[in-house]
């Protein structure tokens, strides 16, 4: 398996994978920001008093969580193309993954907000704050501790899920790996190196997420000790 010739070939394709890993990171960041912002809007929509809006948000969340990312990606990429809305692979993947994670992040925000004691709402409104002010100054700052660890875990899942974008030929690590495989026909070596690259990107993130979990868990305990 490891001959000098294979090594020489690996020296040709390995740098290409490195470049593609950069594209994977870029896709992850864009989709994450889209998901975090859209997720917040959906979470607020779910708590809105406007009739129909909470139901709409609920239906969206259930649809997204009940169907595979792949199906959603194909609907956006191939489905929209059939009505002459052509979105390039990279952008389609960012939109599909971002809107997919928005549903999960909306649930994370919701649990974070509902973790804040109701008395905090009542007190804020009692001193004359508006609903928006209450959210902005009282509720959101306190829910950050609850929200941060699952948000960090979402980043890790998202990083891995970008690999699905290879199935619509969006430029990222997994697609590059497929291309290189068909060019050099060394699937075992190429996919193992690709896996190693994902590991190198994801593992530090998950160590960070775990540290965050410990940190916020501890601070919560101290909080109750003081109270």
């Amino acid at each position: 398996m490891i001959s000098t010739q294979a090594l020489a070939l690996a020296r040709e394709w390995a740098p290409q994978l490195l470049v593609a890993a950069g594209q994977t990171l870029r896709m992850t960041v864009f989709a994450y920001v889209l998901g975090a912002v859209a997720g917040l809007l959906i979470a607020f929509g779910g708590m809105s008093r406007r009739r129909g809006l909470p139901t709409l948000c609920r239906v969206y969340i259930e649809f997204i969580r009940g169907t595979p990312t792949l199906t959603q990606l194909f609907l956006i990429y191939f489905g929209l193309a059939s009505v002459d809305i052509v979105i390039p692979g990279f952008e389609a993947a960012v939109i599909a993954l971002g809107m997919h994670y928005a549903a999960y992040m909306a649930e994370i925000y919701r649990s974070g907000i509902s973790a804040v004691d109701r008395g905090q709402h009542e007190a804020a409104q009692g001193i004359g704050m508006t609903r928006v002010q209450t959210m902005r100054y009282i509720i959101l700052p306190q829910s950050v501790r609850v929200v941060l660890p699952p948000m960090a875990n979402s980043a890790i899942s998202l990083l891995k899920d970008t690999s699905v974008a290879s199935l619509i030929a969006a430029p990222e690590l997994m697609m590059r790996a497929n291309d290189i495989t068909s060019e050099y026909y060394m699937p075992m070596q190429v996919y193992l190196i690709t896996g190693a690259m994902y590991f190198v990107m994801a593992y530090p993130l998950s160590l960070g997420a775990r540290r965050l979990e410990r940190l916020t868990g501890k601070s919560r305990r101290i909080g109750t000790d003081l109270a």
Partner: peptide, 10 residues
């Protein structure tokens, strides 16, 4: 830490 798609392809 590795996408399941990559694992499938391996």
């Amino acid at each position: 830490s590795v996408p399941v798609l990559t694992q499938l392809f391996v």
